[in-house]
Amino acid sequence: MHELSLMEGMIEDLEAEAGKRGFARIHRIRLEVGRLSGVEVEALRFAFGPATEGSLAEGAELEILEIPATGTCQDCGAAVEIAARFEPCPACGEGFVIISGGTELRLKDLDVE
């Protein structure tokens, strides 16, 4: 829903980073996006073009590493992968899963010059 504003904010941050770290162009951006981050990967990709237009990342490649939602069942202790936050443990069928991964929304690295 707010993918465009996230991408626009990211580009603003990167314009600031460029001065600090001494680069002028960004050729590739790598993001880590968890399944539970509340962000849709397709919407991010869609927003990337307009958000980068006229910026130092115009024409850059956007690479998105999707991270599965994982956690530990409170009842049976199994380490499981789930599809949604409220889903019961797929191993025992009923336990509540404490989430340990999949909420990431992270700017991992850049290829710059």
Binding site: E17, H27, L31, E104, L105, R106, K108, D111, V112, E113
Partner: peptide, 13 residues
């Protein structure tokens, strides 16, 4: 060309 590692949340700001 070089790689810059950031590892920061998009919500950090």
């Amino acid at each position: 060309r070089r790689r810059v590692s950031l590892e920061q949340s998009l919500l950090a700001r």
